[in-house]
Amino acid sequence: MSSPQIIGAAIGLFIGGIIFWLIRRDHMVSKDGIRWLLLAGFIMVYGAFPKLNDLLGEVLGISYPPIIPVLLGLGAILIKLLINDTERVKTRVDIERMIQRMAMLEAELVQMKAKVDKDETVTIHRDNVQSIHSK
């Protein structure tokens, strides 16, 4: 295995490791992790066996130009997407917890309203009794 192959596989492994850590430390939900781990596996296999690229190129009739800047750009986009995913998870969790809190507050409101209605009924009843007695 030549060094570019090792580097390619190492990049895939590195991304896989990051995803593993992000899920383990609750920075990413496991559902999103599936996609990222698949991508990391794909990069690893593709990096380790670049001949797959030639095979694919042959099948599709595309040559294999040295497009390092494009690859670097794609790498940067990949990192940006990963950060976006973790941010999105945070927002999603916040929204879900707000929905949970709203549900709790709504229930509390219903209970308080019922209590106020009950208290008012008691007060009205007491006033009525007092007025009857005063007559």
Partner: peptide, 24 residues
Amino acid sequence: VVLPHLRALGAWKATQTGLRYAYN
């Protein structure tokens, strides 16, 4: 006591709403 979710969050998160309510 009914805790109404604004939209469906799934069984676990619905359960967690109840757990948070109990803890509070």
